[in-house]
Design a protein around this nucleic acid. Sequence first.
DNA 1: GTATGTGAACCACTTCACAGCA
DNA 2: TGCTGTGAAGTGGTTCACATAC
Lengths: 213, 213
Amino acid sequence: MPIEIPDVVIDRLPVYARALAALDRNGREVVSSQELGAQLGVTPAQIRKDLSYFGRFGKQGRGYNVKRLLEELHQILGLDREWTMVLVGVGQLGRAIIAYGGFAPQGFRILGAFDADSSVVGEQIDHLRVQHVDELRSVLRATHVDIGIVATPAPVAQAVIDALVGAGVKAILNYAPIAAHVPRDVHVKDIDPVLALQSMTYYLKGELPAGSK
Amino acid sequence: MPIEIPDVVIDRLPVYARALAALDRNGREVVSSQELGAQLGVTPAQIRKDLSYFGRFGKQGRGYNVKRLLEELHQILGLDREWTMVLVGVGQLGRAIIAYGGFAPQGFRILGAFDADSSVVGEQIDHLRVQHVDELRSVLRATHVDIGIVATPAPVAQAVIDALVGAGVKAILNYAPIAAHVPRDVHVKDIDPVLALQSMTYYLKGELPAGSK
DNA sequence: GTATGTGAACCACTTCACAGCA
DNA sequence: TGCTGTGAAGTGGTTCACATAC
């Protein structure tokens, strides 16, 4: 029984994987935790400790084989297969998410798009035809979907999340500005640039205006 | 000399503020840490302790005055004024960011948009005319800008960040999939939905397919 | 010589639990 | 009585430092 692995560790693994993929593209064959850490702004010990939860991937005196470690991380994270998603909320934000080219190359595929506004339903956006949100349940019953993306206005977001969870979806990527309520076995990650800005301003407050020396 | 306030605390304050704003819109006058915590999935003690770094805003036996606490948080976070931003990278993502309606109501204003692609320069997007990235420095010298938004492809993101930092910008909202290198007095928040997805898959890996009961 | 893997020490944040006040 | 504010205790994650292996 492996001991419990901290969530923060899991959150860092994709960052390591991303850096290793870049090194690999550059033809790099080996990295030390030292060098990887410098590149990522993480201590070498952090990296070694994180990896040690999952195995012994390095060679003393040498470092880590880039390709090998990248494959291991993909396996650990489940990135060695494709994941399916549905998007709910086809406003400006939803359209941008559909158009976003960053998901597919990483194996995340949007299978369906849903909206409550019947003037949007039926519209073709990229490769998707927008369906009415009432059909969400039956679509989820018919098709295997791993992840729900929520890009609705705040007031309806919780209801949408309830519907997704009710249909068995265990992971939510939440763009709506609410604190989602989900059962403990459902995973939620929030994407909220406004919150990110609003915490940075705390530190800016004390500063001199930008540009002044 | 106030003792050092943990960054995690600062990150939570905007979340509290958002919830308080919602309560206020609903006409709610008072909340207890208990209730606010239940709403946000945070322990009441957490909330009280976080707030205690900044003052004593509650009344024993009653709770917190919603309006009052919201104002205090705005003040603490510096949200009682407007913040100016520039966007670099006017691709699909950059356009979506410009079109995004969530910044302005919170006091975050995009003053300029920049791109290296001369076929994009001059284009009018929303209220902005795209400028060449070479003009970034002179614009930043002429205009006070608090925050830089980076929405470029990964390979040029660090150079753009260097330019922003070189011009005195102390906060970066980074949408590019890189680990930014900045001096210690510059603040960076990353927005990366792919990383969010890639850590959730770790937990999904073990699960049964969605929808199976 | 060099860099990993890891128990132990350390540090930071969270939670407890209760005194104090409305 | 009810809920805040807060030292003290507890917990969990990070860093250290060194034995180990290449």
